[in-house]
Write a protein that binds this DNA or RNA. Structure first.
Length: 614
RNA sequence: GGUUCCGUAGCUCAGCUGGAUAGAGCAGCUCACUUCUAAUGAGCAGGUCCCAGGUUCGAAUCCUGGCGGGAUCACCA
């Protein structure tokens, strides 16, 4: 904002001319004046008191006079303790309103020519999406939108984890127990259909394991390996993976299937492609409901062998080292991390290798300046290591990598576990929240008057707004618990609350054709509600910048709430259509228009749509 | 145990690189729809900002050490 810089510069020149003290503009701390005090913007003068051996009041008065004399838009000042508060002229604020109103796509920053790739969602193909994915998707999507508004060219991508033992489990389960059932024949959404067989596998395996525990072999293992006081239950709980790998019939069949898949066995590959296509149909439906899409998909089945070449090159340059058993490692101890394996002794890639290779492929595909990975905080360490490795390999974008880490969504009963069926399904929760919007709409004439289709559209927007806002308003890194028994709020600090502010504006503006709100040249005194709104509106571009720098959509959500709240207050206190004068009316119409545009734009950054009526 | 993130009102959360009397929502209690939409607004009540030190004009914010909780510490992904 130009005015802030002007005031800062003026303070600098004031310090120089009055006190012969040189300072940089960046040293002048400025903020919005708190509403308990008189003024618009505040400079904190404490930092200079000591250096100038002056007292805060005197210093404030001197600087205040200097600024008022030199900056035309500053009308007056007052000093409270060490706080120098400036009031700007009403003409200044009116000009701001005009400027914002005339700015195309207000809030967005000019293109900076830099490409950033954002990876999010990244599901496994053996089970449907749940509430945790929704948080991931919302973060990824809104982060992409925010970066776009901040001037980047954004490539939205996901890596689809379409291979591995878990995928084979559902394939095997369907093959053995499916009897040729399909999503069509069972009238089940594809991803849920496949997920059902994944869960079935786990059940069958559990039963097999329980039977085995009672066999002679099982009991021998128990007596030989259990430690001291360990209970039988505890022992077998921890022994599960070993059993799966060494003894289980189902486990071995699944592992054989994985080997066959890797050997490109045709029947297995065909089965795999068929089941994956079911899953993708399901995912696409869910993505459509949430309202997101991707520019580029990467599949783990294509990338899982990547990175090996890079490891060879890195070996030559001594970034990596080879151990006696032929496994390849990197030593990150001098960076405060451990040694990390990047190639198994049999020469195959691990997760890390894959991610190294994938990063390079992405750079080759797009020539990125920056990459953002939206992945849960359980992988904090993985990404710390990955970024360090890419740095050591000298990748050009390595200093511009960011792991957008977020906390898990838990249930009152604890963690969500797909295998145990304790998940809040993504499709279900969206349906539920739309139903809740429906319940809240029963007494609303505006909605009752619409035709069925329009009604559904509005209810969908309201319900999804409630869900999305609830999740995105919380800082990413914080964990959150979700209680499925409690309904999602539609009142107070919520998505529908912000939508309602927007809707109220629309219902007023609808009365005017093509934005003919008139002029407000003779509107002299803005009231406190108008000023508060205008000040908040003007902050929008800076908010986008800061949100992009911090990869933090929650700050935008809080801004939406704050602006909406101010509008509701304004709407309640101030007459628009029956304003005191024509100029006051015109001013308020323009102001409302600008607020509604910012609200819409800001909510769109969060992936939330605005209804025209509700 | 090592590393890391979190701890603010009964509950869910804001509080920007240190700044004025720590703010919202929900829940509770009161008010306000013949008015541009009450999914709204106004008010009351609710606090040892986990604890203890330190840094300084000034600390919820920064540093150190505790306490409590989550995550992680695989030749799994």
């Amino acid at each position: 904002m130009k005015i802030l810089q002007e005031i800062q510069s003026s303070i600098v020149s004031g310090l120089d001319s009055i006190y012969n003290h040189s300072a940089n503009r960046e040293d002048i701390l400025m903020s919005q004046t708190r509403k308990e005090f008189q003024g618009d913007y505040t400079v904190v003068v404490f930092p200079f008191v000591k250096a100038l051996k002056s007292n805060p009041i005197e210093l404030g008065n001197n600087l205040g006079e200097h600024v008022v004399a030199n900056v035309a838009s500053v009308e007056s000042f007052n000093v409270v303790k060490g706080f120098l508060n400036f009031s700007l002229t009403h003409d200044y604020w009116k000009s701001q309103l005009i400027e914002v109103g005339e700015t195309e796509n207000f809030g967005a920053h000019p293109k900076n020519g830099k490409k950033v790739l954002v990876e999010f969602s990244s599901p496994n193909t053996n089970k449907p999406l749940h509430l945790g994915h929704i948080r991931n998707i919302l973060l990824g999507w809104s982060c992409s939108q925010i970066l776009d508004a901040a001037g980047y060219d954004v490539i939205k991508t996901q890596i689809i984890n379409d291979r591995g033992i878990a995928v084979c489990k559902s394939m095997l389960s369907w093959q053995k127990f499916g009897n040729g059932e399909t999503p069509e024949s069972s009238n089940t959404k594809g991803d849920h259909f496949v997920g059902k067989y994944y869960v079935l596998f786990e059940q069958k395996f559990k039963a097999e394991y329980a039977d085995w525990q009672k066999t002679e072999k099982g009991q021998v293992v128990l007596t030989e390996l259990r430690k001291g006081e360990q209970s039988e239950e505890d022992f077998f709980g921890k022994y599960k993976n070993i059993y799966f790998n060494d003894y289980s019939v189902l486990g071995n069949e699944a592992k054989d299937m994985l080997l066959a898949w890797e050997a490109k066995d045709e029947p297995i590959r065909n089965l795999w492609m068929m089941m994956n296509s079911w899953v993708y149909d399901g995912f696409n439906e869910t993505y459509k409901s949430i309202g997101v899409d991707f520019d580029k998909l990467y599949y783990e089945s294509d990338t899982y062998l990547l990175g090996k070449k890079t490891v060879d090159e890195g070996l030559e340059r001594d970034v990596f080292f080879r151990q006696d058993d032929d496994s390849v490692w990197i030593d990150l101890e001098d960076a405060g991390m451990d040694k990390k394996i990047v190639l198994r002794s049999d020469g195959t890639a691990v997760y890390m290798t894959q991610d190294i290779g994938t990063a390079m492929v992405r750079n080759a595909d797009f020539g990125v300046e920056k990459m953002v990975y939206v992945v849960g905080n359980e992988q904090d360490y993985h990404f710390k290591v990955l970024f360090e490795i890419l740095k050591r390999l000298g990748e050009p974008y390595a200093n511009e990598l960011h792991h957008l880490s977020y906390g898990m969504i838990g249930l009152p009963s604890g963690k969500m576990k797909s295998r145990e069926g304790t998940v809040v399904d993504a499709d279900d929760i969206m349906v539920e929240v739309i139903n809740e919007a429906r319940l809240g709409s029963v007494d609303r004439g505006e909605i009752a008057e619409m035709d069925k289709e329009a009604q559904e559209d509005v209810l969908r927007k309201i319900g999804l707004a409630a869900l999305k806002f609830m999740i995105i308003k919380i800082q990413p890194k914080k964990g959150m618990t979700f209680d499925p028994k409690e309904s999602v709020d539609m009142q107070g600090q919520t998505g529908p609350y912000v939508q309602y502010a927007y809707v109220r504006i629309q219902s007023v503006l609808r009365k005017f054709e093509n934005n003919k709100y008139g002029s407000f040249d003779d509107y002299k005194e803005l009231n406190e509600f108008e000023l508060a709104l205008l000040k908040e509106v003007v902050e929008f571009p800076n908010l986008i910048k800061v949100a992009a720098e911090n990869y933090d959509p929650s700050s935008i959500a809080n801004y939406c709430y704050s602006l909406g709240k101010m509008y509701h207050r304004f709407f309640h206190e101030v007459r628009i259509l029956t304003a005191e004068t024509e100029d006051a009316k015109a001013f308020r119409l323009h102001l409302s228009n600008v607020v509604s545009k910012v609200l819409e734009k800001a909510m769109n950054l969060l992936g939330i749509e605005m209804p025209a009526k509700m």
